[in-house]
């Protein structure tokens, strides 16, 4: 178990906001085919929050996550992530924000099939600005993989792993650089309920023990129930913010 990093205590005490969206509008297409996907979305997420985003298909969940994750900058409004205004960052700074502050987990795992597990996990080190020694890159990858019970899969190709294992590798990759925020798009969508539950437990521990802010898109109730708060999107609008009482720590 990793000991609690100092910022966990700090954030829990302060309830400081880490993500804030103000009047975000998002359109797809132009001219007659122009379609508004997000309508005046305003949202605040604090340090250490464990939040689920629910809503019907096409309601704009992925679009919202892409904006928060700095993957999509073509929107109106303001989006501040970890104190940085996303739309004002240049390509390099935005890439660094994704590299250092954010982690992504996708429904379809999105592992690089031609790289081994540890190489997949260590990939974000490749894009870090400073020159990290090779041995350090490797040992960090092993450390994260071992934490998720994948010590025997370090040199395996992703093709030889089960769905649950693949998703754990993907999570390990997202956590490699010790991000503050983990953004997950249907992380249990391709998993059976048993392995899905394992992933939920994993997320819980990441949130509780490491103080990572989690934003999880899901359509599964058991996932949304596990979170502190559920944001319900409908047609690009927040229809309810069902804040449950945070569990006793």
């Amino acid at each position: 178990m990793l000991s609690l990093p100092p910022h966990v205590w700090y954030t829990r005490a302060m309830k400081e906001e880490i993500i804030s969206l103000t009047k975000v509008n998002k359109y797809y297409g132009h001219g007659g085919g122009r379609q508004q996907v997000l309508h005046d979305l305003t949202l605040t997420i604090n340090h250490g929050d464990f939040i689920s985003i629910v809503g019907t298909s096409g309601s704009g969940k992925t679009t919202l996550l892409n904006i928060v994750g700095g993957l999509d900058r073509r929107y109106d409004g303001t989006c501040v992530v970890d104190g940085q205004q996303v739309e004002k960052l240049d390509d390099k700074r935005l890439a660094r924000l994704r590299n250092e502050t954010l982690g992504f987990v996708f429904q379809s795992f999105n592992l690089m099939e031609h790289l081994t597990c540890w190489e997949n996990v260590a990939l974000s080190a490749f894009f870090q600005g400073s020159n990290i020694p090779q041995s350090q890159i490797y040992s960090r990858a092993v450390e994260v993989l071992e934490r998720f019970g994948l010590h025997d899969k370090i040199h395996s190709q992703p093709a030889n792993l089960s769905g649950g294992q693949k998703q754990r590798v993907a999570i390990a990759r997202a956590l490699y650089n010790k991000p503050k925020i983990l953004l997950c798009d249907e992380p249990t969508g391709n998993l059976d309920s048993k392995t899905g539950d394992d992933v939920i437990e994993l997320f819980k521990s990441l949130n509780r023990e490491d103080g990572i802010t989690l934003l999880v898109i899901t359509h599964e109730e058991r996932v949304s129930k596990a979170t502190d708060r559920s944001i319900h999107l409908e047609d690009g609008r927040i229809v309810s913010e069902n804040a449950e009482a945070p569990p006793v720590k």
Partner: peptide, 16 residues
Amino acid sequence: RREIGIMRAIGANRGD
């Protein structure tokens, strides 16, 4: 295409 997306998500900039 997808790999490019993953690399970008992980922290690659356009230059990378």
